[in-house]
Nucleic acid binder design. Sequence first.
RNA 1: GUGACCAUAGUUCAGUUGGUUAGAACGCCAGGUUGUGGCCCUGGAGGUCGAGGGUUCGAGUCCCUCUGGUCACCCCA
Length: 418
Amino acid sequence: MKFKSIKGTKDILPDESHLWQSVEQHIRSVMETYNYKEIRTSVFEETSLFARSIGELTDIVGKEMYSFIDRSGDSLTLKPEMTAAVIRSYIQHNLGKKQPLTKVYYLSPAFRQERPQAGRLRQFHQFGAEAIGGSNPEIDAEIISLSAAIYKKFGITEFEVRINSVGCQKCREEYKFILKSFLSAIANKLSTESQRKIDTNPMRVLDSKDENDKQLTIGAPLIKDYLCDECRIHFEKLQSLLQIAGVDYVVDGRIVRGLDYYTKTAYEIISNELGSQDALTGGGRYDLLVSELGGKPTPSVGFAAGMERLIMILKKRNKLNVTAPHPKLFIAAMDDKSRNRVFQEIFKLRNQGISCETDLLNRSLKAQMREADRQQADYVIVIGENEINSNRVSMKAMRTGIQQEISLDELPNYLTGN
RNA sequence: GUGACCAUAGUUCAGUUGGUUAGAACGCCAGGUUGUGGCCCUGGAGGUCGAGGGUUCGAGUCCCUCUGGUCACCCCA
């Protein structure tokens, strides 16, 4: 085979595309219930936008971005996540001037050059939302509730919302200092991975998957015990609001998100049905990002979720009772002489918005019937000399096999009446 | 980037210690007499056995390299 899809990319084939459409439609409907409006940004941006927002030292920026130099010498990057692009757009178009709080959602492909595995692709699809312009914990609660509501909309209830506060610049620095000294004391017993992180990103040591590391860090200081008053009050208020909103959650003091820009609230939605990549959703508050990217200081919250991971669960749980679109009517031609008349009827019906199909390959009547069955057409009529002369056709309901004779002129009414 | 396992029709898979024309199921196509699908029956098409090297009289089967897939690590959606 000469050409193949790029490693880590997947074609969504005609058999499956309607399933994606249906999932997307459900997501949109929940987003709109919460009064978020869609934003679409281009798939690529200036490389420096992501470097600045996500953080130079993160894995995403350090080794996973699809970056390239275009013909004018600019460095561009296929977006590895959506928030940076949304914020860039928010600032560029002065959306904050039109209203104090901007609520947007998106559905978009994203790109990261990682080794593919279950629930991880190089081109993947995210949906998510951002509420830009407010610092109230009510907004954090709304974002978390919204993301959980989407899974509930699909009948998925087996997931866990884990929340944490990662503090602000002030209290996080103090905490990191304390944490580092705790970790340094046990450094020689930690895994080499974790040892490396003590200086660069000590909070990540706490969510190491290494069993030994887990044991060693059981008594480690957690940031929730070192929050400043403002962050602590915000976190407590968020929890009471989640209770009011009816969102079940657990506090997990070890959550650290992989993107540098989070402040205060950080949260994840985890499923135990996904394999190793178990995060359905990740999100949190990023009060410093807008100003970091050149806008006015604008506190914001958001989340991003993986489409493929959602669909994995839906498939596993058999929650995808979506029916593929199928033609209402199939018109078979008795013989070649009748084909022009068949086409005439087909186009007439299609012009009236009725989905119908006919044989385009000059096949036998039997083959045409088989095709109609395969296409799951609701009805079939056969047009031949008799029908052309009498202007009457036998309408066969394929599910029941019952035939009913009607006039050709009644066809549109008959079909739309059903 | 690291590791493990895998790669045979459109799909899911068989393929004996290396030995003639590489099989099955499903799917696809055509028939089973007069103008009607599904079930059933019969027949047919379809494979450079992932690619390239090597060992051998002989390789789908053994060895090497590459590519791709799957899963895990890392990290994340």
